[in-house]
Simulated scan of single mutants.
Amino acid sequence: MSAISGGVMDLVRDDLRGFAGYSSARRAGVSGSIWLNANESAWRNPADSTVGANRYPDPQPAALRERLAGLYGVRAAQVLIGRGSDEAIDLLVRALCRPGEDAVLVAPPVFGMYAVSARLQGARLVELPLRDGAGGFSLDLQAVADAAVSSGAKLVFLCSPANPTGQAIAPADLLALARRLAGRCLLVVDEAYGEYSDQPSVAGWIDEQPNLAVLRTLSKAHALAAARIGCLLAAPELVELLRNCQAPYPLPSPSVQLALAGLSDAALAQTRGRVLTVRAERERLRHELPSCPGVLRVYPSQGNYLLARFEDAGAAFARLLAAGVVVRDMRASPQLGDALRLSIGSPGENDALLAALQAGRAAA
């Protein structure tokens, strides 16, 4: 590991700063043609004709790491690949937060895994609620900075575009927040839905502001949710430390192969076209949903979803289910007791959503 001398590594738990983790057979840095160092089977499974699943996979495959680095505009040394974004969230909380002492700051209503990981680690959870205004939900970043400093938070998780509320934060504002928090905590910007947003990524600022980290995933725009491939973009020394905290073989070979194929130039061209379709459909639904019976408000969104409030969200949810349309019930979330989150589907699926909601007019 690189020498730890100030900067972002000062935020890591003292007892983990020299942690070397488990040295697996694939991290030994050796090569050969006869592999007898990992107690694997010398034969493939009878059903395996292509993958070679009898051998353990590379923990951080170089080809995929380079491809992701190019996709997100960073260096390969700044990329930690994991099992979706969830693994990176968990690793960050475990590596930076001492149970019962350190805090994690979140801005609800927001993606629930930040709070889940904090609870599992025994970290204090500091919540600074979003504000619901005429233009949609927003966050007071000065209040975030003040709350993070006063609570001694080690991690601030901000989702941009935010899930489920849809708003995005300007990169300049995020960079200013990271500067305010330098030396105190790590600002983690979750850009899971970044491909659908008008706002550019902040990943290019990591070198300048090493207490800034970014979460990305192939689960959304790249249509690889089942492959479970996500990554953390962060300072190389933090990536190296978290790799030592990660499970020995986090990336199944079939998932890696699928990810590489899904990030080919041809696949990326199709993905960009589909993103444009989703953005157009998102705006179509945002304008058509308010005419559906019982819809009170539809929030603007930078993601591939819309948050909507209903006169009777339970009845709307049941009516959609009866039509075979499954949406996300948000009623248990703070400030969202009358809301549903509607993912943007294909044009035909979106038509079915609208038709099911319009059916409420005939039933009324």
Rank of each mutant, 00 (worst) to 15 (best):
A182G: 10
P171I: 14
I169S: 02
V188D: 10
G152Y: 04
Q142A: 02
L175Q: 10
L187Y: 06
F157Q: 11
L175C: 08
I169T: 12
L155K: 14
L187V: 08
D140H: 01
D146C: 01
K154T: 01
A147F: 01
A145R: 09
V149N: 12
V149C: 10
A178L: 03
V144L: 04
D140M: 04
N163V: 03
A143R: 01
C159L: 02
I169D: 03
V156C: 07
D140R: 00
A162Y: 12
A145M: 09
C185D: 08
R184S: 14
S160V: 14
A182S: 11
A182D: 09
L187M: 11
A168L: 06
D146P: 01
A172E: 09
Q167N: 14
V188A: 14
P164L: 09
L187A: 10
G183D: 12
A153L: 13
C159R: 08
L181A: 08
R179D: 13
A176Q: 04
S150F: 01
S151M: 12
D140A: 00
A182K: 08
R184A: 13
P161E: 04
G166E: 15
P161I: 02
D173H: 15
V144I: 07
R180W: 04
N163P: 00
R179G: 09
K154Y: 03
A162M: 05
A148E: 13
N163C: 02
L158V: 15
L177A: 12
L175I: 09
L175G: 05
L177F: 13
L174D: 07
V156P: 10
A153C: 15
G152P: 12
A172R: 04
A143H: 00
D173G: 07
G152A: 07
L155N: 12
V188I: 14
A170G: 11
A143V: 01
V144H: 02
L141D: 00
F157N: 03
G183F: 04
A153N: 11
G166H: 08
A172Q: 02
I169P: 00
A162H: 15
D140G: 01
V144Q: 04
V156T: 12
P171Y: 15
V156R: 13
R184H: 13
L174V: 11
A147S: 13
P164F: 15
V149H: 15
A162G: 05
S160K: 09
L141F: 00
R179I: 01
G152R: 07
V188C: 11
L175P: 02
C159S: 10
A143S: 05
I169H: 07
A176S: 05
A168E: 06
C159P: 03
S151K: 11
L174G: 11
N163I: 01
L177P: 15
L186M: 04
D146E: 02
S150R: 15
G152K: 11
L187D: 03
V156A: 09
L158T: 05
P161L: 09
A143K: 00
V149A: 14
I169V: 14
D140L: 02
K154A: 03
Q142L: 06
L174S: 10
V144P: 00
N163A: 09
D146V: 00
A143W: 02
V156L: 12
Q167L: 14
V144M: 06
P171F: 15
A182L: 08
F157S: 07
A168Q: 06
P171G: 14
L175M: 05
A148G: 13
L186I: 05
A178T: 03
A148K: 14
